[in-house]
């Protein structure tokens, strides 16, 4: 019993040390962004701010506020659109057996595993041609399309858990493809939509490659703005950290509130349907 208690203590000790290491960046970001410009010194990076203040955060916000708007304007519609398409695809692929269904699923799923560099040149040309280069609507389309594979996978796995005989009961009760979707599948899809939406929102919000390739100021999402601040000539660590903090807040809030669903999205690509 004593050995067991020692073991237990050891486990908690290791867990706590690991937690501290994982939370270290949060500490650094918080203490640095609460310092004023003058108070930041390389030598006292780890110290708590002597006079905590919001001046750095205010300075960061002044530079980021417009990009925040861009990111929300981008992430919300793209999340909704790609989730809706994913739900429709997942329903078709999980509940209806038609010839070639598995092959089509493969074709859709492989879109998840491409390096986006391999589509970037044509993408820019096309966006430019249709006049959507350097616009948020253009980015909405891009994120919707490249979100289809993962949302389809999420919904296909989700719908696989709804028993087929419930659908058959609905058929016998007198409804068809869309009736079943509307009256049976959709009401049961709430947590599927939560998983899909959280995942997509996080991915789109955090994306950098499409944002930096397809937009110029002032149409850039926050991730690009953050890199611009970080890469500017005068390195103000306090403003950088405050910006990093601001950029992370929306996705972190979602994670803290609905973490369980985030993890389900995280595992979607790894766990079979």
């Amino acid at each position: 019993m004593a050995a067991r208690r020692v073991n237990q203590t050891l486990i908690y000790l290791v867990l706590i040390i690991a937690s501290i290491l994982y939370l270290l960046p949060v500490y650094v970001v918080l203490v640095t962004s609460l310092k004023s410009n003058a108070a930041v010194s390389l030598a006292h990076m780890w110290n708590l701010p002597a006079h905590p203040g919001l001046s750095s955060i205010r300075a960061a916000w002044a530079q980021l506020s417009q990009n925040f708007g861009n990111s929300f304007y981008l992430a919300i519609p793209a999340t909704l659109l790609s989730s809706a398409l994913g739900a429709i695809n997942g329903y078709a692929l999980s509940k209806w057996r038609f010839r070639g269904a598995n092959a089509l699923f493969f074709v859709i799923l492989m879109g998840l595993f491409i390096p986006y560099q391999s589509v970037l040149i044509p993408l820019l040309r096309v966006m430019d041609t249709i006049g959507l280069y350097n616009s948020i609507p253009g980015l909405i389309i891009v994120h919707t399309v490249y979100g289809i594979p993962i949302t389809t996978l999420i919904f296909r796995n989700f719908y696989a858990n709804i028993p087929d005989d419930v659908l058959e009961a609905a058929k016998i009760d007198g409804t068809g493809y869309w009736g079943i979707f509307r009256y049976v599948i959709l009401p049961l899809s709430v947590s599927g939509f939560v998983v899909s939406a959280i995942w997509q929102f996080t991915q789109i919000w955090n994306n950098f490659l499409f944002a930096v390739s397809l937009t110029n100021p002032p149409n850039q999402p926050v991730t690009v703005a953050l890199v611009n601040i970080a890469g500017s000539q005068t390195i103000q660590w306090n403003v950088q950290m405050a910006s990093a903090l601001l950029v992370s807040i929306p996705t972190l809030v979602v994670y803290i509130v609905l973490g369980k669903y985030f993890v389900r999205g995280l595992l979607a690509g790894a766990v079979k349907g």
Binding site: Y22, P25, W205, V227, S248
Partner: peptide, 17 residues
Amino acid sequence: SIFIYPMAISMVVTGVI
């Protein structure tokens, strides 16, 4: 939650921090 939260943060943010 503590070990997974970095997954919710942008790679760009990670790079800066």
